[in-house]
Design a protein around this nucleic acid. Structure first.
Length: 284
DNA sequence: CCGCTGTCCTGCCAGC
DNA sequence: TGCTGGCAGGACAGCG
């Protein structure tokens, strides 16, 4: 499911429960998710204190007090749930079969990582080696950081022969964009997803970079407000309803094309195996 | 090196 | 109702 804004929301939601807290108990219920979990995973986390949380691309980074970093990716179906401390005879909800890892903090809160499709991953790496890890080695700039703007995007797209849609999904070009925000950013920029990536240069790259920033920023804000401090009553993080401008709107009239009697219709095509939604009228 | 395809896994939903 | 096929927001290996 999650792209950059959802991962950011999950990270911010976990902060109050994890930063400065100690892992009292860690339960690992599976050998592997997408990849095998590290050796002695639970033991290595138990007793460790969390120094800070951060995000890089679609990964949440949990910096620990022994110089290691726990990091995880939610894949397509991963979710985190925070359950408050229980006292006496109170019981927590029974575990779901897809609750793969459970963290209990010294405050008595329980954080469950549930991932039905198991496309997610978790790993443990020394902080000094983090940037060399294969998950991060080749990742492009953070779109909301200073290292991303029109000229930089333009440079990274130059000479690329694949479609601009495929290029935006390529984490080496820019980090954190997934299928939905790629569609949304191209739509709002009036750029056809089928254009060769290398043809998006100059003022179009400026516009696209600006649009990417605003679309992601607004999604993070929407997540924060609709989740009320990023945690729902159920304790679940990262899921918020959002109405997209173009994603999922196949067959609907384009809202950007004005009030003409026959506005073009949003079209769905397959690009590198993924659905792309766009307006053939206003995206050129 | 580059770009594209298939694949991992389960859940859900439309259509028959 | 029950079955089936298609689709799902990601990322990687492997191929040409």
């Amino acid at each position: 499911m999650p792209e950059l804004p959802e991962v950011e929301t999950v990270m911010r939601g976990l902060r109050p429960s994890l930063e400065g807290r100690r892992f009292q108990k860690v339960i690992q219920r599976r050998d592997k998710l997408r990849f095998p979990l590290p050796e002695n995973f639970a033991q290595r986390l138990t007793g460790r204190c969390v120094v800070k949380l951060a995000r890089r691309a679609k990964y949440v980074l949990v910096h620990l007090d022994d110089g290691m970093v726990l990091f995880f990716h939610l894949g397509m179906s991963g979710r985190m749930t925070i359950l408050p401390r229980v006292s006496g005879a109170e019981q927590r909800p029974v575990l779901d079969p897809h609750d793969h890892v459970i963290f209990e903090t010294d405050e008595g809160e329980e954080i469950r990582y549930c991932d039905p499709r198991r496309f997610g991953m978790m790993d443990l790496v020394a902080e000094a080696d983090l940037l060399q890890h294969k998950a991060f080695r080749d990742i492009g700039p953070e779109p909301l950081g200073n290292g991303f703007n029109g000229p930089i995007l333009s440079e990274r797209l130059k000479n690329k022969k694949n479609s601009i849609k495929a290029a935006l999904l390529d984490q080496r070009v820019v980090a954190g964009i997934g299928n939905i925000y790629a569609c949304e950013a191209l739509y709002l920029s009036h750029i056809s997803p089928e254009r060769p990536a290398g043809s998006v240069q100059g003022s179009e790259a400026d516009l696209l970079a600006t649009t990417i920033k605003s679309v992601l920023t607004r999604a993070i804000e929407a997540g924060g407000s609709s989740l009320r401090d990023y945690v729902q009553a159920t304790g679940e993080l990262g899921y918020f309803q959002h109405s997209w401008a173009v994603y999922g709107r196949e067959g609907e009239p384009c809202r950007q094309c004005g009030e003409g009697a026959e506005a073009p219709v949003i079209t769905r095509v397959q690009q590198s195996g993924r659905s792309t939604f766009f307006c053939p009228g206003c995206q050129r």
